[in-house]
Amino acid sequence: MSSPIAISSSAGKPGAGGSLRRARRAEARTARAFVTPAVVLLITFFFVPALLGFVLSLTNARLVSPQGPQFVGLDNFTRLFADPLFWKSLRNTVYFGLVVVPLQSGFALVLALLINARIRGINAYRAVYFVPVVTSIVVVSILWTFMYQRDGLVNHMLQAVSFNLVQGTDWLNDPATAMPAIIFMSIWQAVGFHMVIWLAGLQTIPGDLYEAAELDGAGRWQKFRYVTWPGLRATRSFILVTITIAALSLFSQIKIMTNGGPLYSTSTLVFQSVRAGYEQQQTAYASAISLVFFVLVLTVSLVQRFLTRDKD
């Protein structure tokens, strides 16, 4: 490692034991002062609200209320589990995750393989694939709401490429197509992000492994199966966890494109918790939904971690 500053190899230590201890104490004091701003902020805006979620879910807290919250036991959960909208939202959330996670990670890997070639103009392709990622999901959602109209761009394009055979539908106003349309758009927006992460993973695989495989007469598929795929293990589990968490947190698209409709066919857990906790000001009920959401995320992450664990 080259460095602009000369490196002194002999570490200087203060001479006497007393001054050493004093220096150590001063170092510890300074270090704690340095982490204090970050730690105080993380406690205030992460740990306290996260723990409050547990506590408030057992009370009748409202966002704005003259009275303090009162303990009500498991009432919120009883109500939640009897609420058909909750089960619908849970099902929609899981449905979105089950479709998006494999499709998006697979598509991202295909893109990364396509981009991982040393040819001219490759940076331009990569930049174009990446543009939707830097475009806010809010902007993407209003753009696609426009494109998904009955007489919108998507249907016109479908007609054009199918020579008028395919007549599109009113994508976002049909309970059967609203969620698939949002899934398609969400993958379009986010896939470039994971393409870049797969690409970084692909580049960590040493080139000599491919040369060795070629010498052994491996074809393209065999090289992928026996060199690329095993070499991507760390990247794979990272991508799986991040896509899953992002997918289960689905909110902005729903809020902008369908507001949970039609017929609650696109309501999700986060959407339902925002509706309860913000629009209806029922902080306690929203905390209960958030808690279920947290348990879902935690369970899925742990299962994924277990399945992709290092078996050596």
Binding site: V274, G277, T283, A286, S290, V297, L298, S301
Partner: peptide
């Protein structure tokens, strides 16, 4: 590993 959405509502309160 904890997404913001899990504690956004308690944070609001």
């Amino acid at each position: 590993v904890v997404p913001f959405e899990t504690f956004a509502l308690p944070l609001l309160w």
